[in-house]
Structure formats: structure tokens, C-alpha cells
Design a protein around this nucleic acid. Structure first.
Length: 292
DNA sequence: CTAGGATCCTGTCAGC
DNA sequence: TGCTGACAGGATCCTA
């Protein structure tokens, strides 16, 4: 479930907690969730590629982490702060659930990473996510990383337009969810970007004008900038690095999970349909399929 | 090659 | 109360 803004929020927060920490032991509870051979070493860098997180160790190996739909990372420091202050007891991020405050490990814990000063739990209800060990030099050659397109801020409208022309009959929502076309959008930000730019999710990608493409790209940058600035989305969902909750969905989302509520632009009822196999929210008045 | 649907898993919730 | 099907901030595999 984490999309780019959530993973970026996780990256920033986790950096504060485990930068320079020494990974000493890996406990694999669910073999499917851990690919490769466990390693030990000190964390020297935390990077993000689209929705994937990479922990670089000082031994020239890296942990590539993808949370997919329901992954969570929860860090428990060994030494709890004795006085209040800003430091939380526990840092939790990813798919929202009671695991953030529950006793760990629990039924959904798939991997436990033991550090010198704390423990990082990888929980994942649906087991779609994974942690993969690979040489740091091979990270960018990884099949998933290597195929990723540019992020919205690095891409020009012309580049995006040209990509749309290569998938002329695909609907625009499926197209912008494709990480090899534009990187970082997931179901929330796809719906929000299409709403902000006034484009119906079922429009054919090849039918968008250059101006519409410019608007869509600007909208994608805008909604994700806004979300990163507010610490990611929530809805009992994402918890920021410092333990406080992000509030994108409550404060900024205009259509996502707002079916049967009035459109903020025109007051029409927001509807929910299915596009590209995903629940899709739109305003049928502001996002037209045709000109009538 | 593209486009769309099935699939990987577990859990929850609406509707009988 | 049980059962059943739909659905879920993702990505890949299979089919036509």
C-alpha cells in the first residue's frame, strides 16, 4: 500500500533510527518473505527507488525492501527514552494496523532484523512484500529497480506523452499505475492526480492531448509533494517516522475513498467504479469521457 | 508487441 | 451464528 510518498516518509524516518546501526542477526519466520542469505553489517545509507527501500550495509551488501500491499516496518529501540520529548517508544510505518502498537513479534511478523540498539520487525499480512539481499553494486541492476521509469519530478510532459502513445488503447489509470511508464503512483495518487487534472480514468492513454498530459504530470507532482510534506497518507494508516500519523487522506485527498460525498469542485456525487482491477474514485461531472 | 485478467496471500466486512 | 463472495495504497505472470 505504501506509494512513493509513504515510502519516502519511511525512508526519512527510518534514517533517524537505524543509520549507523549494526545488523547482527536475521530471523526468518516466513521464508517467502526473505530472499537470499542473511548478512550482518552496519547501515551506511538508506535509499528509495520508487516504492522500494534499500538499506546499504558497510559490507557491500544491501537489503532491498518492498512492502507491496500490506508490509510494515516497526522499529523497537532497546533503550526506551526515560523522559518524554519527541522520541517515540516505537517507530512504525507501512500498512496500518494494530501491529503498530501490538506486542511483537506476532502472527504477521515475517522477518526480524536484530540491531545492536534495537529490533526491526517486518510484518506483512498478505506476504506480497519481501526483503531481498543482494550486493550493493547489483541493486540498480535488479529486475524491478532496473525497469522503473523516472519519477514525476524528473520527467517532462513530452516524455510522458510519448510513452502514452506507445500504449494508445490502454486506459489512462492503468497506464499511470505502470511503474515502467511513470514511477511512484499507486491507487490513491493515481485517482487524485486524475481528479486534479480533470481526466476520466477510462480515457485511452493515446487520446490525451499534450496539454492534458502536462496537467496530469503537474497534478501527480502536486499531490505527492503535498503528501510527503504532510507525512504520507493515513486513515488509520501510515505512521510517520517520528510516530505521529500522516494525514494526507483526511486533509488533502479529494476523491479517494470519498464515494457518495460531494465533489469539492462541483458538488456532484463522487462515484466508485472498477478500472484496471482496482477500486477507482472520480467525479463524473469534472472527469468526462466525452464532450457531452 | 499490447491489453486485460488471474494470481500470489490473509483478513475483514456486507449480505444472506 | 455461520457461510460466501467481494475487496484490499502492488506487481507479475499468463493468455488472446
Amino acid at each position: 500500500m505504501p506509494e512513493l510518498p509513504e515510502v519516502e516518509t519511511i525512508r526519512r524516518g527510518l534514517s533517524k533510527f537505524i543509520m549507523k546501526a549494526k545488523l547482527q542477526k536475521t530471523e526468518i519466520i516466513c521464508p517467502k518473505s526473505f530472499i537470499g542469505t542473511p548478512v550482518t553489517g552496519q547501515i551506511v545509507q538508506i535509499r528509495r527507488f520508487g516504492k522500494a527501500l534499500v538499506l546499504d550495509l558497510d559490507n557491500h551488501y544491501s537489503l532491498l525492501i518492498h512492502l507491496r500491499m500490506t508490509g510494515q516496518l516497526i522499529y523497537d529501540p532497546k533503550v526506551k527514552p526515560t523522559h518524554d520529548g519527541d522520541i517515540p517508544r516505537r517507530y512504525a510505518a507501512g500498512h496500518p494496523s494494530d501491529n503498530f502498537v501490538a506486542k511483537l513479534p506476532n502472527k504477521q511478523t515475517r522477518v526480524i532484523l536484530r540491531f545492536d540498539h534495537g529490533t526491526l520487525y517486518f510484518n506483512d499480512q498478505r506476504k506480497f512484500g519481501f526483503i531481498k539481499v543482494l550486493p550493493t553494486s547489483a541493486v540498480e541492476q535488479d529486475s524491478f529497480i532496473q525497469k522503473l521509469a523516472k519519477e514525476p519530478w524528473e520527467m517532462t510532459a513530452r516524455e510522458l506523452y510519448d510513452k502514452f502513445q506507445k500504449h494508445p488503447n490502454s486506459n489512462i489509470k492503468a497506464t499511470i499505475l505502470d511503474q515502467t511508464i511513470i514511477c511512484g503512483l499507486g491507487n490513491i495518487y493515481a485517482d487524485e492526480s486524475l481528479f486534479v487534472s480533470g481526466i476520466h480514468p477510462l480515457r485511452k492513454a493515446g487520446s490525451l492531448t499534450m496539454e492534458e498530459t502536462e496537467n496530469l504530470l503537474a497534478a501527480a507532482r502536486h499531490v505527492m509533494d503535498e503528501s510527503i510534506a504532510s507525512g504520507g497518507s493515513t486513515m488509520a494508516t501510515y505512521v510517520k517516522a517520528d510516530g505521529t500519523k500522516g494525514d494526507y487522506l483526511e486533509q488533502f485527498a479529494q476523491v479517494f475513498r470519498r464515494e457518495n460525498q460531494p465533489c469539492p469542485k462541483c458538488g456532484s456525487n463522487i462515484v466508485k467504479i472498477k478500472v484496471a482491477g482496482r477500486g477507482t474514485h472520480l467525479c463524473p461531472h469534472c472527469q468526462r469521457l466525452s464532450d457531452d
